[in-house]
């Protein structure tokens, strides 16, 4: 009984693992562009939070302005690099 159960388990798992799968699911690898897009989203979220907290009365106006300027500058730098990378021809292995 024990041997039968063990043999069944062995055959079932062997078949599951090595059953010929011709087209395993693949994805392209993450790139610098993906990273920049994530950073862009993070900076936008930071801007939203800043805006919201200012409206909630957490920041004085001048502090808000200065923080917003810095975040906008950061966003602009990221967007510029994204534009450059998107304009560049895509390497064949990433298509």
């Amino acid at each position: 009984m024990g041997i039968l159960a063990a043999a069944t388990l062995l055959v079932a798992l062997f078949a599951y693992i090595f059953w010929p799968e011709q087209n395993p699911f693949t994805q392209r690898a993450a790139t610098r562009l993906d990273f920049l897009q994530e950073r862009r989203d993070a900076v936008m979220a930071n801007l939203r939070d800043l805006n919201f907290e200012f409206r909630a009365g957490k920041y004085p106006a001048e502090e808000y302005e200065s923080q917003r300027d810095r975040l906008e500058a950061e966003a602009a730098t990221i967007l510029t690099e994204i534009d450059v990378l998107e304009a560049a021809p895509t390497p064949a292995h990433l298509v």
């Binding site: 159960a5 063990a6 388990l9 798992l13």
Partner: peptide, 22 residues
Amino acid sequence: MHPMPQFGSFALILALALSAYT
């Protein structure tokens, strides 16, 4: 013979082999 302990021991050996393969 003790079928369940036997089966349990086998399952653990198999798990070890599968982990090594992974």
